[in-house]
Design a protein around this nucleic acid. Structure first.
Lengths: 259, 259
DNA sequence: GAATGATTTTCGTATTATGAAAACATGTCT
DNA sequence: AGACATGTTTTCATAATACGAAAATCATTC
């Protein structure tokens, strides 16, 4: 069913579909299944997979089943721009995680969603798990609302238009005026809450991270079971956000030049 | 000059070459450069890049320059098999890092090299940096020598045949009998040293990690400036290696069945 | 040991990617 | 400003390329 719109080059679309299909399974997958899953002819799938193997995007185990290859890891960790943020954020995130004993996430905006690009999880039995690379709509996350707020009212309207503000829980904001107000208020306060808006039982606190050019470059957030979340964290989190922004070259006041 | 041998599908080879080219640059790159770098016609490069963008393997920034896309991260972190090891190893590695105050690496074997798949770096100004996804030949690394030892003498001979045991520093072992002896001894001791064999000034201690089926699944190592390396770490490291193996389902004695 | 089911290879064909060149941006210099 | 230079994007006729049906090979089951 993964019928993506064509992009100009058939093989690349097909190769991408195959990679996705492989990624969907927790264990190595057979050619048969992959061909069925992607709707490709087996011989075509086989040929493309052979090429992907040659390029180390895919590996074949001893049983002849396919799994993702190390090249993806190699390339994945080199994401430009983000690689810096991730590396710099890591220690700060670990510090927060130890302080709160909860999951700390780093996210960036991509289109109408936030994408999780790094996380620090505590050593507790129960904690919020966010898969790196997974996505969530802007209007149901703390960081997302801040990003919307920073983008301005017109952008929020456009976003609402495009997405129709679907509800994820009964707490999700699905009403444009309320969303605009919430985003503006969050931005003004410097932090945002997510009160079980994306998932029941989970609450977040988020802040924005700015880069050297003064643009929003990422979001930093804590996710915890709602009953364990503490308002005291807000201060620490805002502090960490500022710290991280400074580390990325952000200058608080648009200082009057000098080289 | 990155002239890879053809794999059966031209476009995929070319797309891979483009991704590599992008990854080589720390900042977003222009089409011109990418075309030159890969030897592709600009219009071809442009078309392939457009397709890669459509599939989110590549992004274009506001200046029209290309950088790697988030899909790579998404897929990269889902590497099957390794994902478990990485996740389980993370806390153990962080513990070791805090204990030693040095970089701790997790590696797996791929062909004739070890690949770094996870690391924990200390908060010190000077520490050993290993890029995730980067590679090093087996015979100049601690973990690599253990893996060779575990593979047996015949495999070491074959490895030597294939690679010719190139020297990386004046301490590298480039002589087959010595390598065989070193590997066997390391395996017997349960740990291996790398005394500035891969890079001057850097010393490592490595141990192996076994999975549930009793196979070598990864290697765990500390890398430090040679002057700071301590023999006392060996014990802790071996301990951690055993712990991690157990966590992965390894059973010390090949217990006599029972389901 | 035949039969079933999956993987791999082959090969003629038409679809698909190709790249030269032309249009379009963008920035630079006088 | 205007015109040049440089880089990007689109077009389009062409042939090289990827395609997939079917045959051959391999593995597994009954």
């Amino acid at each position: 069913m993964t019928q993506n719109s064509p992009s100009g080059i058939q093989v690349i679309d097909r190769a991408a579909a195959l990679l996705d299909a492989i990624a969907r399974y927790p264990d190595p997958v057979s050619l048969k299944i992959l061909a069925a899953e992607t709707g490709l002819n087996v011989s075509t799938a086989h040929r493309i997979l052979a090429s992907l193997i040659h390029n180390r995007f895919v590996e074949k185990d001893s049983a002849g089943h396919y799994r993702l290859g190390l090249r993806l890891l190699q390339l994945g960790v080199r994401l430009h721009g983000n690689v810096d943020v991730r590396a710099i954020a890591r220690p700060i995130m670990e510090d927060l995680r130890d302080r709160f004993g909860e999951t700390v996430n780093l996210t960036i905006r991509e289109g109408d969603a936030v994408v999780y690009i790094e996380k620090a999880t505590p050593n507790r039995m129960i904690h919020v798990q966010q898969l790196i690379g997974s996505r969530a709509p802007l209007h149901v996350t703390a960081v997302g609302k801040l990003m919307l707020g920073a983008a301005g009212e017109a952008a929020i309207r456009a976003y609402a238009e495009r997405t129709n503000l679907p509800a994820y829980t009964r707490n999700s904001i699905t009403d444009l005026p309320r969303l605009i107000a919430a985003c503006a208020q969050s931005l003004a306060l410097g932090y945002a809450l997510d009160d079980e808006e994306a998932e029941m039982d989970v609450g977040c606190i988020g802040v924005l991270v700015y880069d050297g050019t003064g643009n929003v470059s990422a979001g930093l957030s804590v996710s915890a079971p709602i009953l364990r979340r503490r308002a005291e964290w807000i201060e620490d989190l805002m502090e960490a956000g500022k710290r991280l922004s400074l580390d990325l070259g952000y200058r608080p006041h648009p200082g009057p030049s000098a080289t």
